[in-house]
Nucleic acid binder design. Structure first.
Length: 112
RNA sequence: UUAGAUAUUUAUGUGGUCGCAUGAAUUUUCAUGAGGAAAGUCCGAGCACCAAAGAGCAAGGGUACCAGAUAACGUCUGGCUAGGGUGACCUAAGGUAAAGUGCAACAGAAAUAAACCGCUUUAUUUUUAAAGUAAGGGUGAAAGGGCGAGGUAAGAGCUCACCAACUUGUUAGGUAACUAACAUUUGCUGUAAACACUACCUGGUGCAAGAUAAGAAAAACAUUUAAAAGUUGCUCGCUUCGUUUUUCGAUACAUCGCUUGAACACGCCAGCAAUGCCGUGUCUAGAUAGAUGACCACUUAAUACAGAACUCGGCUUAUUUAAUGUCUAACUAA
RNA sequence: GCGCCAGUAGCUCAGUUGGAUAGAGCAUCGCCCUUCUAAGGCGAGGGUCAGGGGUUCGAAUCCCUUCUGGCGUA
């Protein structure tokens, strides 16, 4: 898991981002983000049931977390992020997921 | 050697770097960290609340041979009976069809009830009518036990012998289901995974159970006979003693429940077995956007199916690789 | 976590209670009609009744089980 200050936990916060956030996406991932007054980026993950069975969803979530952990210093700290997966992501390996995630963040122009 | 049957085990390991959860220690370290099915949610329990969990009706049950095991079970073990297999062995929802009702298409004369053809007799008379008859015919999933002899107008369990089934009884074996022998009775279609009947079982809701918090203001109704609310689908019974609604106030998206348990490992004894008694030792996930990942090296037969969410006992289903014991059939050799 | 429902032709649905020819509409294909197309008429093809097993003489239907999809519940 990420450090506690970087986690997005409350259901209300997810709901706020879904309603008011901006989007960027590719074939495998959707990124939703919204500006805040905090000085730490906060990140949440949402993996739908269509992606696969429980063990596969857990694995994808862990791999996404591992990628974000290494990128977290490069992210714009004034935003909250939610990564939503699409079903096609179940066919990718770790490096391909990493490329997809970096692609989505670059499209939103949130890398330092 | 080939082809099988059955029982059981296994679910890679070690080290390094970065990172997570819980608990210790106390300030950066240590320990532990998903499964054999964690899955499906199909049964049985614990636990919590609802009277003290109560009565009746209704409803439901994948309950239904015997004995045993178990906290309990629709589970398991051993047997009985029936069916399948050359065999080792496997499979079974396996009570009542003589309480009653329903259904049995098409075909066929006829489907639980019998005369279409045929056979025989009588009458009429030259092709019909009446009576008798289930031996023969074809239909069908299923046609009134089988076969032979006697008997007869022709036939028929009508009578008899044998065989098969069935009712009841006796004897022998077995705890029992049941089996065997002998005597005796009868001529009875199938279907209950159709309704039903008999016996047995089930109170309801599920950890989103439930416990902890702090109250304040306003309005309406009621005045102890009740009313209202709760309690199971209904009726009773029972509980609460002021009740209901609205607004404000709580980081309650909190804390507890939450993991020591019908626990696990080893040994001995009892038992064919399921399992049980006793002794010794161990503490072994507990999250809440929800902990196991990324990279590298060596290693293994281990690449599959797949992720705990209150906890156990089963059942069902998914599945990789390797190995072991016992047994069967066929062939070959000695 | 708990509870419930559905699955039949390419698509939308009957038939399931009460067991015995698997049907309708649209779509597809062929022919007719028309100068041609549409509409109309005639005809044809297309179904492991979601998969597997059981009960029965016989199963889309009854029973069990698995899969897939969907709904409700704070």
């Amino acid at each position: 898991m990420l450090k506690e200050i970087n986690r997005l936990t409350k259901r209300k916060e997810f709901g706020y981002i879904y309603k008011h956030g901006k989007y960027s996406f590719n074939n495998y991932l959707t990124l939703m983000y919204v500006q805040t007054k905090l000085k730490n980026p906060r990140i949440g993950f949402s993996i739908s049931k269509k992606t696969g069975k429980a063990w596969l969803r857990n694995k994808i979530k862990r791999q996404l977390r591992e990628i974000v952990k290494n990128l977290i210093e490069n992210l714009n700290p004034n935003y909250n992020y939610v990564f939503v997966t699409k079903p096609e992501i179940s066919n990718l390996n770790f490096n391909e997921i990493k490329d997809a995630l970096i692609d989505v963040v670059n499209k939103a122009k949130l890398m330092k």
